[in-house]
Design a protein around this nucleic acid. Sequence first.
DNA 1: CCTACCGATCGGTAGG
DNA 2: CCTACCGATCGGTAGG
Lengths: 212, 212
Amino acid sequence: MKTAVKQRTYQGEQTHKEILKAAIDIASAEGLEGLTIGRLAGELKMSKSGLFAHFGSKEELQLATVEAAREIFVQEVITPSFPIERGLPRLQSMLEAWVSYMEKSLFKGGCFFAAVSAEFDSRPGPVRDRIVALIKSWLDTLEDEVREAQSRSQLNMRIDPAQVGCEVHAVVQEANRAYQLLRDRRAFDRARQAIRWAIESAAVSVTPRVAN
Amino acid sequence: MKTAVKQRTYQGEQTHKEILKAAIDIASAEGLEGLTIGRLAGELKMSKSGLFAHFGSKEELQLATVEAAREIFVQEVITPSFPIERGLPRLQSMLEAWVSYMEKSLFKGGCFFAAVSAEFDSRPGPVRDRIVALIKSWLDTLEDEVREAQSRSQLNMRIDPAQVGCEVHAVVQEANRAYQLLRDRRAFDRARQAIRWAIESAAVSVTPRVAN
DNA sequence: CCTACCGATCGGTAGG
DNA sequence: CCTACCGATCGGTAGG
């Protein structure tokens, strides 16, 4: 009896995970609104209401999908950089992990957060609020590591940490867009190059972009 | 009789323009799929089928909306820079016009092309094809002006024009995203600053980002 | 430009 | 987890 219950709970959890994996894939390509319950049920060969039972509403499904995507992002991009020394080394490590993660094209539609942040930037509600908070927090993490690099004399004290954070964020996002739209894989190395220049030009002693 | 016909044609054209103006506004905020015929008809206080008569299908409406948005972009960003001397001056003029155009927030959801390119990057079809072609053409325009600046000895011959084109494109897109998502108006000046640095570090004689 | 429809699909519920 | 529904809305059509 006890085993059966446990079995069912384990099965339920597995199903839950499978649903969210498929949901991230669909949402990265067609958005969190394009993620309809019927579409998702069809993909998983489940009934609509069977799937629906796992979540109370479409909004709850969207929020759970955002959370699942967040966990993968943290695991792929942030956690591997924890052992790295703080300051410039960790900043570079996180940025390289981020570019690699995009280059691997883990999800059908590329970066999940790039897709859904554009989709929800004008749709008020808890889903937008959560997406905004996560992106803000990632920008803060980058900015903070720039500040740490300054305090360790790895970057010039006179540059604005927010400015450098935004610049590196910008070029990585551009790589995702260029790849998704133009299918140009050179976009990833361009992002790496742009990151190097953004960091070098903020260094304590500036190295020119090209030899003159 | 003839006047009446002309009148009706003129009226029809006016209505057509009004529809597309509203369509761009809705699509910039809620996407070209969120632009439903019922929603658009409601906004314009027309019947669904009355509005539908102007276009043969939803796809035709989407394509017409993309074209209308393109015309506004050309008029706001590209045309004003035609009188400017080619090379670095024209490049800077186009980029400043682009940032200003975003800062003005002409449409409800910010940059139309930022919104719909993210939405359609995984939806094959003529709408995606058209959006991709327009974005490709804008990137080519920027890259071409970098090349012109090189041939006029305003930028270093050893830098890659595509790299600089992508970088400036990236930082302007980042400004739109940051403003739409975080409502931080400093994003526009950060974009201007990032453009200056991208250009300065590609100049014939490099100026450091900060005085050392 | 309108009214009056069509089948399909949406999010969601009842009941098991 | 299922079948069998609900009202609302979707893109689109007929006929005027």
